[in-house]
Amino acid sequence: MSLALEASGLHKRYRRWFFGGAAQNALCGVDLAIPRGTAFGLIGPNGAGKTTFIKCLLGIAWPDLGTVQLLGGSPQDPAVRARVGYLPERLHLPAAWKPLAFLGAVARLKGLDARPAELRALLQRVGLDEGSERRIGGFSKGMRQRLGLAAALIGSPELLVLDEPTDGVDPLGRVEVRRLLEAELERGATLFVNSHLLSEIERLCVRIGILSQGRLVREGPLEELCRAEASWEVRFAPGMPEAPLLAAGFRHAAEGAFLIDAKDAADLNAALERARLAGALLVDLRRASRDLEQVLTETLRNSA
C-alpha cells in the first residue's frame, strides 16, 4: 500500500539565540506512516509538538534529524506541495480582498488556472456563496475558516493537512465541513487532521496518533485504541430485574446495557452463565469501548 505520508525519526529542537532561555525539544524522534486514502487524526495536549510536526511535514520548519516523504516525494519539491492542501491553524487572510480574489491568488500560486466559475463552485461547497461579494475583512471567524478550507481544496489535492479545521465554525457548519471532508475521502484524498475537538476526530478519522512531549506515544486504528481490553458490553432482554445481574457482577452502562469485566473467555462465560441462571436472556454481546477523551487521558497519564 502506498503511503501518503512517511516520517522517520523526526527530531526538532528550538534554540534561543538571544535573550537566553533553555532550548526546547519539540519533536523527539517521531515515526509515522499514513497510507493513502485514510483519515488520520493527531491529538495531544498543548505544546505536544503537533503544529511543529505538521510544519516539518510541509517544509515550513526544518527538522534537525529525520526524513519526511510526502506522496512519495520530498516536501521541498514544489511539484509535491502542489498536490497538498493545507489549512493552518491561524490563517492570515488579506482583509481588503474579496474571497474570489484570494482564491484566485492561491490558485495561481498553485500553478492552476483561476477560473472564476470553479472558484465560485468551491465557495459554494464551503457554504460561502452568499459572502462572495463581501470583503474578507468583514467575515466572521467561521467564514474565514471556511474560506481557508476552500483555499486548501483548490486543485483537488491528494493530501489535505488541516490544523483545527472547524475552529470557530458553528455546530451546523461543522457538520457541513465533516461531510465535505468525507466527500474528499471518497474521492481518494488522504486527510491529516489536527484538532482539539475529539468528537470531530472520532467521527472523521479512522486512525489517530497521540503526541505528547514530542513523542508519538500511541498510534493506530481508532477502533483498536478505543477498545476496552477487559470489558464487555452486554444487553439482556427487557423485563429482567437488575438486582441479580448486579449481584452477578454486572454494572450499569448507558442506554440499558450492562458492563462486565472479564480477563479471559472463561471468566466471561462464567459471568454470562450466572446471568442466565438468574433468568436473564442475552440479546447482545460486544467488547466495550472508551471514548477518545478517555483514551487520551489514560495515555497521557501512562506516558507521564
Binding site: L58, I60, A79, A82, H92
Partner: peptide, 9 residues
Amino acid sequence: RIEHLLSLP
C-alpha cells in the same frame, strides 16, 4: 501567512 505560502508550490 508565511506558513500558508510555504505550503504552496
